[in-house]
């Protein structure tokens, strides 16, 4: 499929300037923060005289103008070096590599279930716009859409962990349980139920509304009348034609929603004390660790870019018009 490949390549090329702008932005934040990498290094290694410090600054290219500093920053990044985390006393890259998988797991389960359940309920509501089912689901989704994830997390903890004692209060797995294999997997799954619900609920409401609103629009399209005239059953029109067309905007949402969800994971992981990537951002700010914070920022930007590329690829495959028109 060369058309799809060239479409993908074009999209890939447009991400390069975007990534560059993000880099410039994060460099500016680094410059605005008090203290540089050498200060951090000195604070860690203890005694160092002024001459040694000046020499180190020279070596790391920090005593020259901002353009040189930017070059040094970029070249370090190109080597996969995100700097030194002062809070963890380790390279930022290794801290992030340790924390990222948990968050990606949390996010992908939350995205998957929100998308699945949300669009399914959206079809139920959008099958007959204006019906009582639609009214209940639409109003309900609007209410859920107003609930902050971190607060929902606390409420879920109060109900399911404190009162009912059905689920664990936090963490990603039981400490020192010695579980392996399937038992460990089950343990992690039990720990993920509440955080995933807290993170996913808002997006479930979002997909429900997107799907329902788009379906309501499509029902007014003349082609639906044509299908009815051909004698197709209602069920077939709903699923094969109306819902199928309405799913496209929801798929577009998936990519950008990953950005919002990464932001949401910061608070949700703090609520459930999950040692993930999101909580790392909060820890970095609390412990004044700017290199770590910017590492988190850059990695989230890259995650969002990748998510959007994947969505575009899926979209290009699902909707042939995209391949031709761009």
């Amino acid at each position: 499929m060369p058309l799809l490949a060239s479409f993908f390549l074009k999209r890939l090329i447009t991400t390069i300037p975007v990534l560059f702008i993000v880099l410039v932005g994060s460099f500016l934040l680094l410059e605005a923060a008090s203290g540089d990498a050498v200060d951090a290094y000195v604070a860690r290694s203890g005694a160092m005289d002024a001459e040694q410090i000046a020499q180190l600054r020279n070596e790391w290219g920090l005593d020259k103008g901002p353009v040189h500093r930017f070059e040094a920053y970029i070249s370090a990044l190109a080597h996969g070096d995100l700097g030194w985390s002062t809070a963890f006393e380790r390279p930022v890259t290794s801290v992030i590599a340790e924390r990222l998988p948990v968050t990606l797991l949390l996010m992908s389960i939350a995205t998957g279930s929100a998308f699945f359940a949300g669009s399914l309920l959206g079809v139920v509501a959008g099958a007959r716009p204006g019906s009582w089912r639609d009214r209940i689901l639409s109003t309900g989704s609007l209410a859920i859409y107003a609930v902050p994830g971190f607060w929902l997390g606390l409420v879920l903890i109060v109900i399911f962990a404190v009162d009912l004692r059905w689920l664990p209060i936090g963490g990603i797995e039981s400490i020192a349980s010695g579980k392996t294999g399937l038992a460990r997997l089950g343990d992690i799954a039990v720990h993920l139920v509440l955080p995933v619900s807290a993170l996913a609920m808002v997006y479930l409401a979002l997909y429900l509304r997107l799907m329902r609103d788009r379906m309501a629009e499509i029902w007014r399209d003349p082609f639906v009348k044509g299908l009815e005239a051909r004698g197709l059953t209602r069920r077939r029109i709903v699923w094969r034609h109306v819902a199928r067309n309405a799913i496209l905007p929801a798929i577009t949402m998936l990519g950008w929603q990953s950005a919002a969800m990464l932001g949401g994971s910061v608070v949700v992981e703090s609520v459930f004390s999950i040692p993930g990537f999101g909580r790392l951002a909060a820890e970095a700010v609390a412990r004044r660790d700017t290199p770590l914070l910017l590492g988190v920022l850059l990695c989230s930007a890259v995650t969002v870019i990748i998510a959007n590329l994947l969505v575009d690829l899926a979209y290009g495959k699902l909707d042939p018009r995209v391949r031709i028109s761009r």
Binding site: V18, L19, I21, V22, G25, L29, A33, W256, A259, A260, L262, G263, G264, V266, V267, A281, A282, A284, V285, R288, T290, L293, L294, V296, L297, S300, A301, V304, I305, N308
Partner: peptide, 16 residues
């Protein structure tokens, strides 16, 4: 580029 960085993280970084 601004859309790519999660709004909440951007706010957090600015505040820091």
């Amino acid at each position: 580029a601004f859309q790519t960085v999660p709004g909440f993280l951007l706010a957090l970084a600015t505040i820091s």
